[in-house]
Design a protein around this nucleic acid. Structure first.
Lengths: 340, 340
DNA sequence: CTGAAAGCGCTTACAG
DNA sequence: CTGAAAGCGCTTACAG
């Protein structure tokens, strides 16, 4: 592998000058530049990124810290990662995966190695020790999700607007008895997870603001528990004509639960799966109406926010919220006109 | 951030000696070692991985090359990546994601930067230009999947054994008319993809070896096309009592297609989804019987094979095949005793 | 068992 | 516009 020195010798210049043209960091006369470019081509020169990193104090690597224990592995997270890595690459950064347990200690250790210029932290909890560690580490970061500390840079789903849109949609179809099936794993890792908290709060607010009565049933992240939840909802309030489900796996169960109760989807009960993906929705029969987690957008904006910080192109740490777009499938429709 | 020099001064030794204890690479007397360890603790010393990489000619980073355009993003690939990253970490390596288009040029460029010690290439095609580039780049690698060149190190699903197990299972239940719905995207990226080719070949061989008549119908990777495929299968041969589906999305459609034909799953027709995951299977009603893609195993063994090469702990490049384990759901059962 | 020193391949003030 | 030189923070023969 040719080095900068090789190029410099062949082009009869100093390695500093080679560096200037490689990085386009100082003006170089057209003639010299041409000689250098030719030499690079001849030698098939490729700059060594490790040496560059050591000398420049910038590795141009960013890390995604994600919960190693997380076995939820749908299209959403994969899209997020794929997009994040692509955007990083297109801006000249490498993207490393750091699976960390919730143990913040291990994280500090990784950061101290100096491998990365910045960090993206996902699955941020409302109170998150890892965030505190990040702050004290002085390594630039952006959060996917957010804590209570409103001064930190983050990108998150706008659950308030998402729920507003969901409720607007249903009320415009004449629904008044709209239930929420929300994920809740007591004592588990998901406890204290912002999305669930914010979803429920936004739902309740939105219902009350519309003069409607909130009805929340909890489920776990499985079709089976979704089935139970559907039964519960219908038992608690047989007038329910619409269900918003905040867990894509449970949504499948909600549909089959309703069917097993002898009711039709969407003729009797509409089902809307939120914070999920159309790909998942398409697997259901009827195809689920969904509000899609903006995974690619979160990846793109998250990486963008981080790199903007790294490159100092931004004054304030950005705080971005993105609502889930509504994609109609076959599982929602007008409220039934006659009582069942 | 404290450097090795700081530690050396505080412990009154040379930086070489510090290096020896940090890396445990040469014997150091207990007394000196103790002083150095204490100094490191005092200064909260953490070795700079970039400097180490430059000096040692080893970055301890491995890359996963994956198709950027790939929008198939189920639990399988996520499990693979998660496990691969974890195993890499536990062996002291960082794991970077390199989304590359099929363009082999870009790949060579990345490799030449010297960021990584080795590479994992996934979605390997039967004839794959990227593999040729890898070979000539002299960067150690392992393939997930395999080409025609049988001398390269790889880890792959054992489709032959998988199909054998599937056929054994069905014939033991009395099925004789067993169809295969295989994914096939003409002219697309998936064309020429080994798994589809090997699945079909193994299926045909297996059927013929059992004195049965193979029946193959193609589908694309969607529930809709699975629905069509189910209809086709039943039209072509109404005696079909079992269907093996080689695409998890299509499998959902196969089930609903059968139901829409007025038949029951599994009472009339059994459906087995292969190279998928139980998580996906659980979303179906009835729950799909599946043969699960060994995603974690592929990740673990792939990374293991690569790192073994890097560390020279292995003589021959390993070639590993893993069959998909059968997990029974509700979508398969005995062959119906009476003709429909 | 320990140290002095070269070197990894770059970047970056500084000087001209 | 170009160059000489220091330095990034380590590893690794080599010598003792």
């Amino acid at each position: 592998m040719a080095t900068m020195r090789d190029v410099a010798e062949r082009a009869n210049v100093s390695i500093a000058t080679v560096s200037f043209v490689v990085n386009d960091t100082k003006p170089v006369s057209p003639a010299t530049r041409a000689r250098i470019v030719a030499a690079m081509k001849d030698l098939n020169y490729q700059r060594n990124v490790v040496a560059r990193a050591l000398a420049s104090h910038r590795t141009r690597i960013i890390a995604l810290l994600y919960p190693a224990l997380d076995h939820r592995a749908g299209p959403t997270i994969m899209k997020f990662i794929t997009k994040a890595a692509s955007v990083a690459h297109s801006r000249g950064y490498d993207f490393v995966l750091w699976p960390v347990s919730n143990d913040a200690e291990q994280m500090s250790h990784l950061l101290a190695g100096g491998l990365v210029d910045g960090v993206l932290l996902m699955e941020v909890q409302v109170n998150d020790a890892r965030v505190d560690r990040l702050v004290e580490s002085a390594v630039p970061f952006a959060l996917i999700g957010r804590t209570n500390d409103s001064s930190l840079p983050f990108v998150d789903i706008d659950f308030k607007v998402t729920l507003e849109k969901a409720l607007d949609y249903f009320t415009s179809l004449g629904h008044t008895h709209i239930a929420l099936v929300n994920e809740h794993t007591p004592g588990g890792l998901l406890d204290d997870l912002g999305p669930l908290v914010r979803t429920e709060a936004s739902y309740r607010e939105g219902m009350i603001a519309r003069g409607l009565v909130p009805q929340v049933v909890f489920c776990e992240g499985s079709p089976q528990s979704g089935r139970l939840a559907a039964t519960d909802v219908l038992a608690l309030n047989p007038d329910t004509t619409a269900i918003i489900v905040m867990n894509e796996n449970a949504a499948f169960g909600v549909v089959s639960g309703i069917k097993r109760s002898g009711l039709l989807v969407p003729e009797d009960v509409s089902v809307l799966s939120i914070s999920t993906s159309s790909e998942m929705g398409a697997l259901s029969d009827p195809i689920l109406s969904t509000m899609n987690a903006p995974a690619s957008e979160l990846g793109e904006l998250g990486v963008g926010a981080l790199i903007d910080q790294l490159e100092g192109t931004v004054a304030h740490p950005p705080q971005l919220l993105i609502a889930c777009p509504l994609v109609l499938g076959e599982s929602t429709g007008p409220a039934p006109t006659r009582r069942r």
